[in-house]
Amino acid sequence: MLRYISQRLIAMAITLFLIISLLFFLVHSMPGSIVNDPMLPIDIKERIEAKYHLDKPLVVQYVYFLGDFLTFNFGDSIKVQPKVPVFDIIKDKLPITIQLNILALLFTLPIGVICGIMAALKKNTATDHGLNMMVVLFISVPSFVIAALLQYIVAFKWELVPILLSAEQALTWTKFKSMILPILALSFGEIAIVTRYLRAELCETLNSDYMLLARTKGLSQMQATLRHAIRNSFIPLANIFIPMIFSILSGAIVIENIFSVPGLGSLSINAINALDHPLTIAVMFFYSLIALISILVVDLSYGIIDPRIRMGGKK
């Protein structure tokens, strides 16, 4: 187990360095640096260069850059909120994004799991075929198309929920009601993926020999399914859990924009469109960081759940 954890941690650290290096490279190759302005007086230019360590060799610059990133010191925003430290902007936008993502995850998992189990237990029946159709549909139709459709029909035509996210700070009923559509738009595709995956896994487990043995030792079909099949088919679910976190996170970028959610997603779109590079880079770094932490959590809990990893056995 220790070996497994340290392996994961090392891989993650390298990934983090890779990301930072990539960002560093990007910053340095980005056109339109302030110091390239020919109108700038030499002494001011030198002062700026000194401030940003631009007069030092590249390696030293890299070390500074690394230090800055690891201490969350990303500099100031240029255009979106000029002169405001990037970190403060992100800190401001982060909670709603995390709220949205976690709610979407909480909505996705149980429904996906229930649908998957139902499809597997009722294999080749009308229920199964219906769920299969839903799966193909929701996997195929992009989340932003679903979002537009929901917004136009549910919010605009039927007026059931607000069109845009409520501006209230606290999580009130009004606020929650306005979050329903973004959550739905984020969840549908993921629900379909969980359903499809769990169905396949469960069908295989249900046909396994240990299910037969469980039944021959006197467990009813129901008991055997609950105690052996479903439990076991949950473990490989971790395989799709990490891509799912990625996908909800990135889906949120567009969905936030559509529903005017003042989160990290809208921020990154603003930053990209305004060519506010320090902000964009910091936002991307944050996305990577959230993703890395989620991976670590999933990987470690996976290690705890699956005895074959916990005990260091072969998979």
Binding site: T15, S29, M30, Y287, A291
Partner: peptide, 18 residues
């Protein structure tokens, strides 16, 4: 393993930015 730790979208965005 290391490459797949980076959210694909972040990589793609950075690439297109560059």
């Amino acid at each position: 393993e290391i490459l797949s730790g980076v959210p694909p979208l972040v990589l793609v965005i950075l690439f297109v930015m560059y």
